[in-house]
Write a protein that binds this DNA or RNA. Structure first.
Lengths: 241, 241
DNA sequence: GCGAATTTTGAATTCAATTCATGAAATGAT
DNA sequence: ATCATTTCATGAATTGAATTCAAAATTCGC
């Protein structure tokens, strides 16, 4: 009978409603001021109902991070499938992140917060697992591309596993997002265009890793053009938003 | 009269007492379980007294992060002053961080947490300022070294400012610390020796940035030897602890 | 030693997260 | 359709930790 399924769907819809409400409240008042009762109120449900979906505030935050991951994954997959060299596509992942960071400025701040051990450690294992799984395709896309590059002879792993190679740009972009999304750090040091720098650094890193073809990092125009092209053709979005 | 100064010193000592107590409680029970009343209790003071030093829990955490920075700064300064090529010293900063991360495993987790905008945003401006200043020498050491390298012809900035060059390894190491110090990420992907990888990535990055002399990243033994040497001679610490 | 000023104290307050007794709605057997 | 049963939604009440603040203790200047 379809009754159970309908109910299941309604519950899923309500969960999405809560997540959207939380996201919108975070945009308005910041993560700092998010209150569970406000989330419930905004959806015209009692707090108890909210707690049937998320056993704690941490649970809600991690669920939200997982939910938002899908959109980022979609961008990564499009880059992975793009018609371009392995190297351009690797850089393209960074471009995808730049686009995504602009579209959802709160996302990386949320990610940074939930991956803090204070929050992560207070989150139920099942939810953590789901969050890891929601993000896994990002890594997988990078790993697949690395495999492809090795297979095509574009990249000599020189003793590293694909997973280890993947870690390098991952760390670089994680670190940059963390630095950029922190008021106080940027405002103090005033990096003109941190994300433009990110592309250059990753390009340098890929050169250092020996990913062919070697590409001149000095040629900012060429990097911009590549980013531009990927944004337009692959992500259907303008680069300088 | 020395009365005021004595009192001032007593207050400073007590502040240190609180910070040490907080650090020790965090080591025992984790950041998640830190309670202001416990910190006060552990020092045999009333909570109110604790609140004369730190206006909020966030304030205490940021103060703790600032306090711990000094030790890390000392390591950086020793590396900066070491007798070694500019390039070896740049890598040496990473070695210093590795040593420091081993000595104070909680430090990077705390840093990651306090630089979260939830915590940072709830911290009084004066304390934030102090925290930035406590960390500034790390950056300064790197900047000085970069200037020296450019001056000595070891490094062609190729259009980047020293500050921008500095950002690259900074982001890389920030990102790696964040990934490494997060249970769940490492445990899942099982990177054998993440910090050994860090040296290699930074080495690759320096190659990519064109920092001379070009150094073979494949030669793990050479990197280990350098790390070993720096640990022993400069940091007076064994590398494989 | 004495009153004013400063500091310390910890019980009381606050405030958001979380629980749970209650009643409402859905289900399903008769 | 009716009633017993289970399941679900509710929001007032509870909890627990951060924070406050009036009273007590201490220090200071004379």
């Amino acid at each position: 009978m379809g009754t159970r399924e309908r109910r299941q769907r309604e519950v899923a819809e309500r969960e999405q409603l809560f997540l959207d409400a939380a996201r919108s409240l975070i945009r308005e008042d910041g993560l700092l001021n998010l209150q569970m009762s406000r989330v419930a109120e905004k959806c015209d449900y009692a707090v108890g109902t909210l707690y049937q979906h998320f056993v704690s505030k941490e649970d809600l935050l991690v669920a939200l991070a997982s939910d938002q991951a899908q959109e980022r994954v979609d961008l990564f997959v499009r880059v992975y499938r793009a018609k371009a060299s392995t190297r351009d596509r690797m850089l393209g992942f960074a471009v995808a992140d730049i686009v995504y960071a602009r579209r959802r400025p709160e996302h990386f701040r949320l990610l940074q917060f939930v991956f803090t051990d204070v929050i992560w450690g207070a989150t139920p294992p099942a939810r953590r697992q789901a969050c890891m799984e929601a993000h896994a395709p990002l890594r997988q896309a990078a790993l697949d591309l690395i495999d492809e590059a090795i297979g095509a002879g574009d990249l000599d792993p020189r003793g590293l596993t694909p997973s280890e190679i993947c870690l390098a740009p991952w760390a670089m972009s994680t670190g940059l997002h963390a630095i950029v999304h922190n008021e106080g750090l940027v405002e103090q040091h005033q990096f003109a265009e941190p994300y433009r720098l990110m592309l250059r650094y990753i390009n340098d890193l890929l050169n250092g890793l020996g990913w062919k073809p070697w590409t001149d990092s000095t040629d900012a125009a060429a990097l911009d053009a590549l980013a531009e092209r990927l944004c337009k053709e692959v992500l259907h979005e303008s680069y300088c938003a």
